[in-house]
Design a protein around this nucleic acid. Structure first.
Lengths: 210, 210
DNA sequence: ATTATCTATAGATCTATAGATAATGC
DNA sequence: ATTATCTATAGATCTATAGATAATGC
């Protein structure tokens, strides 16, 4: 009865706190966000935030792990294996791109929390390994097959995966810069993002031709 | 007489402090590094750090701007314009890659300081714009020429630049993960990095074929 | 009764500065 | 004399907790 986790309406302080904490952690990372600030945003006392989540660590973990799971689920989702190779790459890239578009601050959260404090906080190492294995294993066989039949140039799964990841994620990390600098405006934003998505897919596929 | 900035030997507390601060800021970002910690590492009192640099902000700016300038100088360096297009892309990518290899924590410093606090601290916007303009302008004409003569597929400077930047920078951001997870070890590290460098160049060039 | 919320406060930091003392260069 | 260094401390935060009070469900 306690874990409603509803979030949908304006029901209850607990979800208000969670929502505010999520937004703040995503925008400023763990260390720059204070319990006091979360409380102020949620409209309650800072003691109440501790009442619900005991420690800051706790609150952060809850949010981070939720986001991470969501990320995994999306990536690992079973795709149609019968698709031709090019289409498969396209579907996968497209899905990663959309996920990032819906969570633009996610990479920043990862960087600021996981890379800075490798030892500390969350132990997602195993999670990450299995994610990578899962994400690449089904691709691996297909890639080998394509290479052997000469339909793509010689390369490896790691490189293809890194290329996909690099192109998609960096775009969203760089986007705020482009906006601040005026290269992307409110008017052309949607179009710019859609265009870049197509270009990334085109780049990956074109780069694989023999 | 005061700004020796020698750094080479073990001469003087001031350079010791600068060196320690640089290392700490690069590894943990501005907010996670305290003056106390810098002092402790440098082997002096925290008051002394203030004596030399007055404020933390000051100390950080000095280091950050130095790094940024170094970055600009390296990117913008005049290359041989007479090189064939493919070679030019290769030289440019290679140079960016080597710069990153020599400053693996740089992207992190950028992210943690510039993206989190866009308004705050350093006003590098103009610097960045002129860097981008400078970096792409000389390429622009060449790209148009290649496209018109059909030697590369239809694309634009922005996309090529983003591709280069994404592939190179993300690799170094991801590298610590790959190490932690065991995919890259001390034994294969050098080889892995060199291999990835070649693959990135190959990817960019291959993706441009008509 | 139990659950949700507040006030108040202890205990850690951290930045910055004032003021004392040691080292150095004329 | 000037420059480099230290000790001590003021003043801001911040996390976490204790203890009081208001709201809610039987």
């Amino acid at each position: 009865m306690k874990d409603k986790e509803d979030n949908s309406g304006n029901e209850g302080m607990e979800s208000r706190i969670l929502a505010c904490a999520e937004r703040l952690f995503l925008n400023k990372g763990y260390n720059l966000t204070s319990m006091t600030e979360i409380a102020k945003e949620a409209g309650c006392t800072q003691a109440l935030v501790h009442y619900y989540f005991r420690t800051k660590e706790n609150l952060f973990s809850k949010i981070f792990e939720g986001k991470f799971q969501q990320f995994i689920d999306c990536i690992v989702k079973q795709e149609d294996e019968s698709l031709p190779f090019g289409k498969l790459i396209e579907v996968r890239t497209s899905r990663l791109f959309d996920l990032m578009a819906a969570n633009e601050r996610l990479p920043f959260m990862f960087l600021s929390e996981f890379i800075i404090n490798p030892d500390q906080r969350i132990n997602l190492k195993d999670n990450i390994v299995s994610l990578c294995t899962e994400a690449t294993s089904r691709l691996e066989a297909k890639i080998r097959e394509e290479m052997e039949s000469g339909r793509i140039r010689s390369t490896c799964t790691m490189d293809i995966t890194l290329n996909m990841f690099s192109l998609v994620v960096t775009f969203f990390v760089v986007l705020p810069f482009l906006e601040e600098v005026g290269l992307v405006t409110d008017a052309n934003r949607e179009e710019f993002i859609a265009g870049r998505k197509q270009e990334i897919i085109r780049t990956i596929i074109a780069s694989l031709r023999p």
